[in-house]
Computed example of a mutant assay.
Amino acid sequence: MSISLRVTERSMSTQSLNGLQGSLGRLSQLQQQLSSGKVLSRPSDNPSDAFAAMGVRSQIRMQQQYSRNAQDGIGWLGTQDQSLSSGLDQIRQARDLVVQGMSSGSTGPDAQAALAAQVDSIRQSLLQTANSSYLGRPVFGGTTSGQVAYSPAGVYVGDANAVDRSVGDTATVRVDTTGPQVFGTGSGQLFTILTDLTADFTANPAALGADLDRLDAATRTVTAQLADVGARYSRVMSMSQAADDRVLALTGQLSALEDVDLPKTITELNLQQTSYQAALSVTAKVLQPSLVDFLR
């Protein structure tokens, strides 16, 4: 025995309207996606993809920070590289002057005094090099809050603290070099050596040989530090490129999660519009108004 269900005009109208509302809602969603260019406009659109997108965005921000840190480190190390390269040229000039002053019989007192003046001028220039700064901070002064690493007398006024930059998930690079590491300390300090040379040219020419040995030792120290700065510079450059590449890859992942597929969405929109218009037409024909509707 079968049971027949009575279908009323009201139930047909309700079902038809629900279907039309659902179709209109889908049409509106597709139009919103096309206008915004995004599949995800709110977490409720797709909770799992929205959560994944949040994670990707967090990684992008982290990699962008690494890239900014690396660029700052490149500025620090690039300044040191230029300063030390210039400093070495000046030190070699001073050495040539010492060798000239040691040549017996080739120079008189006036010439020796002139050589002393040139060495002193190189010393003053090297002090300016030692006080090179990046963004207002002396690159050879550690973390000092002062404007210079060396006083006019050649005394180190910075500190021994390191300036580090985080350039990767597990990569931290030191981007400074303290003055004593580069220019030495005590009797082997470059500025002390140049001061002694300036005096010995006229007062004690016999000491120029020992002064030259000290100058050569100081030159080797500066050269070694220049090589170390160059190695760190190359590493930071590589980490900067790696961070930028990672940002590009993550941006692609985020686009796959959030951005709309234009050809697919346009096709779906056209189909949905056709479906909605057809549903409207059929509903209008099936649910004709009755005499009771007019009597109400």
Rank of each mutant, 00 (worst) to 15 (best):
D244H: 10
Q189F: 02
E258Y: 10
D228F: 01
Q128G: 07
L194T: 00
P152R: 06
A94T: 08
S187T: 13
L254F: 08
P263S: 08
Y134K: 01
Q80N: 08
T170G: 10
R6L: 12
T177E: 07
S44P: 04
L197Q: 08
A217C: 08
A117F: 07
V7H: 13
A218I: 12
F294T: 07
S103P: 11
L115Y: 03
G158T: 05
L287N: 10
F294L: 12
S86I: 01
D245V: 11
T274N: 09
L257T: 08
D72G: 11
T223N: 10
I122C: 02
I74G: 12
F140C: 11
L97Q: 09
A162S: 08
S187D: 09
T185A: 08
Q59H: 00
L295M: 01
V99M: 05
V247N: 13
L295R: 14
R61Q: 13
E9H: 15
K38S: 15
L97S: 13
R42C: 03
D110A: 11
S28H: 15
A217I: 05
L208Y: 06
A242F: 06
V39Y: 14
G19Y: 05
F140I: 06
V56E: 09
P152V: 04
V139F: 02
A171D: 05
Q65R: 08
A217R: 03
Q288D: 11
P205Q: 04
Q112T: 01
D261C: 09
Q29N: 14
Y276E: 13
V148T: 06
L254V: 00
G108E: 00
N204P: 03
R26P: 06
I74T: 12
D244F: 01
T144K: 08
S13E: 14
G186A: 00
E9K: 15
Q181V: 07
R68S: 14
D196G: 12
T219P: 11
S83A: 11
R235G: 01
V39S: 15
M239S: 13
A249W: 14
R214L: 13
R165I: 01
R6W: 14
Q59E: 11
Q32P: 14
Y156W: 10
F51A: 15
T283F: 09
L88E: 05
D45W: 04
V286F: 12
S106E: 02
T178M: 00
F140W: 06
P205L: 05
S106D: 07
A206W: 03
T198P: 04
G87A: 04
T129D: 12
Q59V: 09
L262W: 00
L212A: 02
T267K: 07
A94P: 05
R296N: 09
L226E: 06
A130K: 09
